[in-house]
Amino acid sequence: MGSVSGKSGEMFISIKKNRSAYLMILPFMLFFTLFTIVPVLMSLPIGFTDFNMVEFPEFVGLSNYASLFLSDKIFLQSIRVTLVSAIFTGPVSYVLCFLLAWFINQMRPKFRTIFTLIFYIPSLSSVYTVWKIIFSGDAHGYINSFLLDTGLITSPVQWLTNGDHVLFVTIVVQMYLSLGTGFLALCAGFQNIDRSWYEAGAIEGIKNRWQELIYITIPAMSPQLMFAAVMQIVSAFASGEVSQNLLGFPSTDYKAHTIMNHAFDYGWVRYEMGYASAICMILFIIMYFVNRLASKFFSKYSD
């Protein structure tokens, strides 16, 4: 285990010394191993097999991966869609989370509770019916009705079925829904900052709110910023639920078809679990490298 270098004897003593720590992590590790680690390890080899969920998986080597990149045009398009949507729902939504949490933190407690609730409540409810009605393709939709009223358009726009608009609509709804986890963690992070640091900063000659933000707040919050970044990466890259619920499946011309949608297609529609597993593995590799990038960026702040 990486953290210990030296002889096995030393390690044994150190393990013995930390008995109580091992006891305290035991309950979590027990269930984590049973229901996360074991299933993940069991699922790893599936990507190299042909598995239809009825017969025993048959080993096929790298052929799933080969056909993904060589003959599956829709997969390559899904990578493109995922990247485009991740660029918007990832960084943009992340900066928004941070700014919102920062502004809200400077309010009086009463307003703070109300505003935190308003910005968090969307992540509590994931009802897509209301979005279907808002973006409805006929004149009954709220957006269409509003745009027709103001004269910006002359005929209703098919938001949910026109291939030119579906990705845009998905991104808007995804951003709306994905604000929550990171935002709330950042709010808690702001409250964790020792007030005396600001006072010390004022004495040291910090002039305005921006300097305070850059020299005190951001470094002090780097753990929460890292957490929010990971959550944002996961929700941005593993998105798919929104387009599935909003646009139906598959979306028009696969224009809003993310990698997760592709995995759903092969896993739960065609029952080709081996292929679906290979798709998920590639998504994992992408997310892993983006995550490495993010942690490199944040390790500059936390020393």
């Binding site: 285990m1 390690m11 720590a21 990971v230 996961v234 679906a276």
Partner: peptide, 27 residues
């Protein structure tokens, strides 16, 4: 508590967040 294995467990926990697969539910 810097006990032996802490770093390893740490990275496993973050990695498990990143691994999204529909095969896991079957397992």
């Amino acid at each position: 508590v810097k006990f032996p294995g802490a770093k390893f467990i740490n990275s496993i926990i973050v990695i498990s967040l990143l691994y999204q697969s529909n095969v896991i539910y079957i397992m």
